[in-house]
């Protein structure tokens, strides 16, 4: 459904020194430099896949998404989405895709969402009867009711995002580009948007490419992730493989009946924390079962928990260390 080969984008950005002198110089003689936002990125996404797109701010996620939608022309490389070259922006292509941006809105601020939906129905050439049926179906899934007839400015952020999703999906697109769709939402609203996206994908078989700052979005929805850093693709595969790659160790937490000296844990992984009866160890994945068996054998264990370190910490740590 999506094929990307050697995709690059170079922007020319203006540079300005601070202060009045810098401002005057900038006004008279503008200095620019080239910034590589995306560099030689290649991947393929099959129909119906839900793929997470990870990366720090400014990593090149949004630029890539916009090239896939056809909003930005690539500097180099080839893109095919649903059999079309996006930058040609043919009507046939635009009917098959949608873009949702958590930070921008297409709904008319002063009018109820229903008015914007009616405009979209006309733009996409959807008859009133079909539009009504689709709006009802999607509103049911999104748990939207009378919110559709209240001015957008009076809606909460969560209700507004759900209405944005409805507006973006009215034409039943096959490819969804979602750029931070849960940004700023509270935990409950995030969960409802996630449930909706999973259900929409199950019902329609739509292909979804999702960027999010909330790892919970990615872990709940995307079996596969693309990790991009400084414009380059760093990882393409299952989320677990990324975790394995980033963190070859697992975290073991113990709650003991009585306190134990630190040297008692020698040879049982790396001791990260020992606070009375609470112990935290990092154990290499291939030794996990042996170490856990030994721990249970040697110590009076009241509770034991094995987990992966949170992925956002792993990725954040990786970026900080400059390992990527």
């Amino acid at each position: 459904m999506i094929q990307v080969e050697g995709l690059s984008k170079i922007y020319r950005v203006a540079e300005k020194q601070p202060g009045l002198a810098g401002t005057l110089r900038h006004f008279i003689r503008r200095r620019t430099r080239n910034v590589t936002a995306v560099q030689n990125v290649s991947f393929k996404i099959e129909p119906g896949e839900m793929v997470g797109f990870l990366g720090a701010n400014g990593a090149g996620k949004t630029t890539t998404l916009k090239m896939l939608c056809g909003l930005i022309h690539p500097s180099a490389g080839e893109v095919q989405v649903a059999g079309h070259r996006p930058q040609r922006r043919q009507a046939e292509f635009l009917r098959r895709i949608t873009l949702v941006m958590g930070q921008k809105q297409q709904l008319l601020w002063d009018l109820p969402p229903m008015d914007s939906l009616r405009v979209n129905a006309a733009v996409y050439g959807i008859s009133d009867a079909v539009a009504r049926r689709r709006i009802n179906e999607l509103a049911d899934l999104l748990e939207l009711g009378e919110e559709l007839t209240r001015p957008v400015r009076k809606l909460s952020l969560g209700q507004r995002m759900k209405a944005e999703l409805l507006a973006a999906l009215l034409h039943e697109p096959e490819v969804l580009f979602l750029d931070e769709p849960t940004l700023g939402l509270d935990v409950n609203a995030q969960a409802r948007v996630r449930q909706f996206l999973a259900e929409y994908n199950r019902r329609t078989g739509a292909t979804v490419l999702l960027t999010s700052h909330y790892m919970a979005d990615i872990t709940a929805l995307c079996p596969r992730v693309l990790l991009i850093h400084q414009g380059r693709l760093f990882h393409d595969g299952p989320l677990e493989a990324l975790a394995d790659q980033l963190a070859p160790e697992r975290e073991v937490r113990l709650e003991l009946e009585s306190a134990v000296a630190p040297d008692a844990f020698a040879g049982l992984g790396r001791l990260e924390q020992l606070d009375g009866c609470d112990v935290r160890l990092l154990v290499p994945r291939d030794q996990l079962t042996t170490v856990v068996a030994q721990l249970l054998d040697r110590f009076p264990v009241r509770d034991l928990d094995v987990s992966d370190p949170p992925i956002e910490e792993l990725i954040g740590g990786l970026f900080r260390q400059g390992r990527v």
Partner: peptide, 13 residues
């Protein structure tokens, strides 16, 4: 300036 031209350019019109 605000980037909402994106929504216009993505419509099949």
């Amino acid at each position: 300036r605000e980037g909402t031209l994106d929504f216009v350019l993505l419509k099949p019109i």
